[in-house]
Design a protein around this nucleic acid. Structure first.
Length: 103
DNA sequence: CCTGTGACCGGTA
DNA sequence: ATACCGGCCACAG
């Protein structure tokens, strides 16, 4: 598969987020060995093929919120997928202390 | 080359 | 707690 090492490392880290846990864009960037690439993590997720097995829904921003607009389609999908894993936001915020992959 | 665009982040007021 | 700001970086025009 022809992909950049950068993108690859990010995808690998994303794939390793355990079920029932969440990580922030920044954490994924740093963990993959690319501190400061949080924005790019979002770009990678956006371009994921629909058949991808990457758990994109387990990624939230540093504030503990879903990065989609509350009224958007993606917001509801992510919320639904997280619920299936027992992750339920309170006041729109997901506690990283409780569900955070990295504490 | 330069500019604008994001599923972002941390500091400051 | 919220609001704003500058920095961040790959990528498409």
């Amino acid at each position: 598969v022809i992909t950049s090492e950068l993108k690859d490392s990010i995808l690998q880290t994303l794939a390793s987020i355990p079920c029932g846990k969440v990580a922030t864009y920044g954490q994924i960037a740093k963990l993959s060995g690319n501190p400061g690439y949080s924005r790019y993590v979002g770009t990678v997720l956006k371009d994921l093929p629909l058949d991808s097995t990457i758990p994109w829904h387990r990624v939230i921003n540093s504030r503990g919120c879903i990065s989609f607009a509350k009224d958007s389609d993606g917001y509801q999908r992510q919320l639904s997928l997280l619920a299936k894993e027992g992750i339920t936001p309170e006041k729109g915020r997901i506690s990283l202390k409780t569900y955070g992959w990295i504490l």
